[in-house]
Design a protein around this nucleic acid. Structure first.
Lengths: 189, 189
DNA sequence: AAATGACCGGAATACCATTCTGGTCTGTTA
DNA sequence: TAACAGACCAGAATGGTATTCCGGTCATTT
């Protein structure tokens, strides 16, 4: 297999297992069965390698979310399913878990940067769906980025944050009910 | 002046200037012109003293927010004014600023606990306003705690978080527009 | 030309001696 | 005798330094 691919696979494995800070270039080289210098012929430094891996993950995440859409479902149903999928990915995917953990405990700057980039990408992704809904005449015209932002933050608040200060998680019905009555209802034509 | 009050004033000053971890009981005693042992006749330990100060601050914050309400204004107008006031207090009040900073940099557990308690208190405060609106027939019955939570989190997202990833802050009009169309509109009878 | 890994300097870590701090307690003051 | 003060204690925090570790380079090998 070509060396670049070996390196990417090795880096994926190592970043997922140990996080950004704790993976060493020696480590990656070893796993990839490659001399350390070889990595630098494909990636100019550790951070570029890291971005490469993370970007691949983001694409995969968007892809999965995309495939979650159901033919013939309403905008709200699809949006709900897609966003829930994104949140689930966040707490399921090894690398993502590790990055969130590292951000919380270690405050590694490179990781913080990457996480905000990912958030932006997610919000953009949602905004794109809204724009498409508007174009198809399903939704009222609106500031799609702002709405996407509010929507995503609301989901995170209700799905993830709520349970940090309350002992029983919100049910999916409670979440869809409140959001259908508020943000979603304001979007529909 | 009575010694208990001296101690509280001293503690307020010290916590505001240095945060929780960096204020020592000796420090507080010195400022209060009191022997260290004396503090322990009024407060059983450092944390209790701290809670005392923080609680006082929370009462003041609610009080200010309360007084912001305008006679004869709509529920939305008052809610907006009150919540904006709360957020402003958060980034204006010395002690509050210090605590948020300490939570971010030092991760002092006592401070983290206190901050979540404060958040709960704020959400409760908002929920109370909603309940009153329902009782007066201005608002539809609803899960007031859930709505209060969503509302507060949305405000924080739009007022504070947005500007972390975007260079121009949202205008107050953008914020009121989007929230009037979504959360507030779902509340009105 | 491509790949390697010994090597480098600066950053991170581990270690331990010293200081600091929350809380107690005994002596003192009013 | 009740309120107060501050010396005192044990354990936690800190600081300084000797050592290890790691990203990145580059002379050598394939």
């Amino acid at each position: 297999m070509d060396r670049r691919e070996e390196i990417i696979l090795a880096a994926e494995k190592s970043f997922s297992m140990f996080g950004y800070k704790a993976t060493t270039m020696d480590q990656v080289a070893k796993i990839a069965n490659v001399g350390k210098g070889t990595i630098y012929t494909f990636f100019s430094n550790k951070e570029e390698l890291f971005h490469s891996i993370v970007w691949k993950m983001v694409e995969e995440m968007k892809d999965i979310s995309e495939r979650t859409a159901i033919e013939g479902a309403t905008f709200q149903e699809n949006a709900h399913a897609r966003i829930m999928q994104l949140l689930k990915f966040r707490e399921t995917h090894q690398l993502f878990i590790k990055l969130i953990e590292e951000e919380k405990e270690l405050r590694t700057p490179a990781v913080g940067d990457v996480l905000t980039t990912i958030e932006k990408e997610i919000v953009n992704f949602i905004a794109g769906k809204i724009d498409r809904g508007v174009a198809k005449g399903e939704l009222k015209p609106c500031d799609s980025e702002l709405i996407a932002y509010l929507l995503f933050k609301s989901y995170v608040a209700l799905v993830n944050d709520w349970s940090k200060t309350h002992d029983k998680q919100l049910t999916e019905k409670q979440i869809t009910d409140v959001l259908n009555n508020t943000i979603f209802s304001s979007l529909l034509v």
